[in-house]
Design a protein around this nucleic acid. Structure first.
Length: 768
DNA sequence: CAGTGAGCGAGCTTCCGCTTGACTT
């Protein structure tokens, strides 16, 4: 048995480190935290200094037992969890869960997985820092209190199963408030003037008027003034400039750049990065550090000098700009910087690697040297200048490999300008005036939301992706694309001293994969902002983080900090439960022309809906759910009334009503007890489908279903062998069972089926 | 799988941060 047991957080890390240490060391992984508060209730004794009740989760029991067996036999246990608040807590929980005595334990830390870093860590062990552990406990307990006291309020005041928390609720607020800004935005028109000029030698240049013109009258007047106007170059100015590379990737910047350049979702990027990490291609992918190890710096320098030449190399150290950074790891970089590419079946992972490789190498390259030129052209009949800006790369430096993507719609690229001299006479070939409209602030993408969250210090590298998935799963936010709208604009030209104006149209405002708040998101956000201002404050996390730091420094006691937070918070909880109205986002649209009763839209138990009449009326009110794409804020009375046209009875078939409606899975018809989807391909709509058309669909389905059945058995009517989307399978009551490879579906007997069912794993009930 | 929305009351839902698989569709 080995004398030394080393415990790290990640199994991939354990494998690497075992290679660096001798045979006297066994390296194991804790797979993250080993104890936590149970999820069933709050599990904090608030009266008793917020004493937490930690448990070992079921799925961790086996692992903890294994670690305990190993640690009992080892002489020294090296706790090598990450050097941050969570890592320190994991070490402490390990001591508690494994029953380790302090004299057997040595706490070591390293920020990079290199042999020298690990050996030097072994040389300087320390004790577990209980202050830092307490800071983590305060963080954990505060999050539990906030989440588990606020969420139940939403169940009662808005809708069951909703959730609220320090991080997710602020993320939703960001999206909801951006939408408010967009709704409040009114586009402003202005006119841009662009001239195409040519000099006597035939050199052409495109230049824009130095400011936008506020309306058509002004634009038309200036355009008219360019008729028979003499133009000449009034100024030529050239200035040298430099561009520097950006820092290597952190989790957040990797997610942003993979979204901009490769179109990956935040979750996709993380899955691919995890694969690259596990196969040893990149360093750890959940990091907030931009630091590179000395080893990596040396390797980069050597590689750049030999492949690109000495003048392309520039050794750089970057420092983090984000406030909450804990920097327990390196930046995300290739493990082997000389590995430019590799064989792999996953093209998407390869593209992500390529991005990481280029970003890392570029970060160690020289500045690009540019020359920026501005040429100004004046005219004798106008008092404004036309300006052209150009940029010439004198030395490409890091740009040879990498340019960072941009979130905003980019202005036209500045290219090279012709060699013009001051005083050159310029002939105007064409002057154009284009009407432009200012554009509302852009909606967030998943990645730009992560960027914003990082700026506010909410969330951590390991939680950005899960948080974004949570707020979508709860139905607060949805990812959508919009087609944009037709926008008319005025377009004027002066050619051959003649002015013409025409009307043109273009499509503007198309958006891809943007985050939109839902009705529920908006109602929940309004409710929380009103009742829990302090938690929803954009700076709340930053403020408590400061206090966590003070706990870590030993300046304040953790449960006193919690007490000060909890008292007023809990008061708000009680107050809200007692006094606040149910939040429904209710809006009255008008009157039902048939009954004269009020029509209103609101959030119901099952989501947004329209209601005709009040609950207190003699007849029950009528209800209808909103359809996809409709929302409480801007549905019209007409649209709301249309929702009551369905379900429709088309007629009868074999004595039963045939019904057309729209359900959870789209439009359908119901004949006898069979549901048949109305597909888009059929070009039929539930609003006007006829009985005849419906019956045709029904018979087509019966026909198709008959081909589905491979065999059935008289012994058990609930058991059938069927052809499904994924090939043949056995249907037994509600359970679907796969047919093992090598068995022929058609020749299965009843006994064969029973055997397969017996051997099949228990079906897991998925929760919604 | 294609409904629901009152009220009664049971029993359920929920947080943030560390880590990977084991699942099915």
């Amino acid at each position: 048995m080995s004398k030394n047991l080393v415990i790290v957080e990640s199994p991939a890390k354990a494998k690497t480190i075992e290679g660096y240490l001798g045979k006297d060391f066994v390296v194991k992984s804790s797979f993250g935290h080993v104890r936590d508060l149970p999820s069933k209730d709050i599990s904090i004794d608030i009266e008793n200094d917020f004493e937490p009740n930690y448990v070992i989760p079921k799925e961790k029991k086996k692992l903890v037992q294994e670690l305990k067996n190993l640690s009992d036999k080892a002489e020294i246990i090296w706790l090598a969890t990450d050097e941050d608040r969570e890592g320190e807590a994991i070490s402490w929980h390990l001591m508690e869960a494994l029953g380790l005595s302090e004299d057997k334990v040595k706490r070591i830390v390293f920020h990079e997985i290199t042999k020298s870093a690990i050996l030097s860590a072994i040389e300087s062990p320390r004790k577990v820092d209980i202050n830092l552990v307490n800071a983590q406990q305060a963080r954990r307990i505060l999050d539990r209190l906030v989440g588990y006291e606020m969420s139940p309020i939403l169940w009662r005041k808005v809708k069951p199963s909703l959730s609220a928390g320090r991080v997710q609720s602020v993320a939703v607020r960001i999206i909801a408030e951006r939408e408010q800004e967009i709704r409040a935005f009114t586009p402003q028109a202005s006119f841009r003037l662009i001239g195409n000029f040519i000099n006597e030698e035939g050199k052409q240049i495109k230049a824009e008027l130095d400011r936008k013109l506020e309306n058509w009258d002004v634009a038309n007047e200036l355009l008219s003034s360019t008729i028979e106007c003499d133009f000449s170059v009034s100024e030529v100015e050239s200035k040298p400039a430099t561009k520097s590379p950006v820092a290597p990737f952190t989790t957040s910047t990797l997610q942003q750049e993979a979204s901009r350049k490769l179109g990956y979702s935040v979750a996709q990027t993380m899955t691919l990065a995890q694969k690259l990490y596990e196969s040893g291609k990149i360093t750890y992918m959940r990091t907030d550090s931009v630091n590179l190890s000395d080893l990596a710096l040396n390797e980069a320098e050597k590689m750049i000098r030999s492949v690109y030449g000495d003048k392309y190399s520039k050794r750089r150290k970057y420092s983090t700009k984000s406030k909450g950074a804990q920097e327990a790891h390196e930046a995300i970089r290739p493990v082997d910087l000389t590995l430019k590419s590799f064989e792999a079946d996953d093209a998407r992972a390869k593209r992500l690697y390529d991005l990481i490789w280029k970003r890392t190498i570029a970060s160690q390259m020289a500045d690009a040297k540019l020359e920026r030129t501005t040429i100004k052209i004046s005219g004798d009949k106008i008092d404004r200048l036309f300006v052209a800006k150009g940029e010439v790369i004198k030395f490409d430096g890091f740009l040879t490999l990498y340019t960072e993507g941009k979130d905003d719609i980019e202005e036209e690229e500045d290219g090279m300008l012709p060699d013009l001299k001051k005083g050159d006479k310029m002939l105007s070939e064409e002057i154009i005036a284009i009407e432009r409209f200012s554009y509302h602030p852009p909606r967030y993408t998943e990645a730009s939301l992560v960027k914003k969250m990082e700026e506010l210090g909410i969330g951590r590298p390991s939680t950005y992706a899960p948080t974004i998935s949570t707020i979508q799963k709860r139905g607060y936010v949805e990812k959508k694309s919009t087609e944009g709208t037709q926008q008319g604009f005025r377009y004027g030209t002066v050619i051959n001293n003649e002015i013409t104006w025409i009307e043109k149209t273009e499509t503007t405002g198309a958006e891809k994969n943007k985050l939109f708040p839902t009705d529920i998101g908006i109602v929940v956000n309004d409710f929380l902002v009103e009742n829990f201002q302090r938690i929803l404050d954009y700076n709340f996390t930053a403020k408590v983080e400061k206090q966590f730091d003070e706990i870590a420094e030993g300046e304040i006691v953790w449960h006193k900090m919690l007490d000060e937070f909890y008292k007023p918070f809990h008061h708000d909880v009680e107050e809200t439960l007692e006094n606040s109205e149910k939040a429904t986002g209710q809006r009255i649209l008008g009157e039902d022309p048939k009954s004269g009763k009020p029509i209103l839209v609101r959030i119901g138990r099952f989501g947004p809906m329209v209601q005709i009449g009040e609950a207190s009326d003699e007849d029950k009110p009528k209800f209808a759910s909103l359809r996809e794409g409709q929302n409480i804020q801007d549905i019209t009375l007409e649209e709301a009334l249309k929702l009551f046209d369905l379900p429709r009875t088309l007629g009868t078939y074999e004595g039963k009503d045939v019904i057309a409606a729209i359900g959870r899975f789209g439009p359908y018809i119901k004949v006898l007890s069979t549901f048949v989807s109305i597909t888009k391909a059929s070009e039929l709509k539930p609003e006007d489908i006829t009985l005849e058309q419906a019956l045709t669909l029904y018979h087509q389905k019966i026909e198709a279903d008959s081909k589905k059945l491979i065999s059935e058995f008289k012994e058990d009517e609930t058991l059938k062998v069927l052809n499904g989307r994924y090939g043949p399978f056995i249907k037994h009551g509600k359970n679907n069972i796969r047919i093992p490879k090598g068995k022929d579906a058609e020749s299965l007997t009843y006994e064969d089926c029973l055997e397969i069912i017996k051997a099949a794993p228990e079906p897991k009930r998925k929760r919604k």
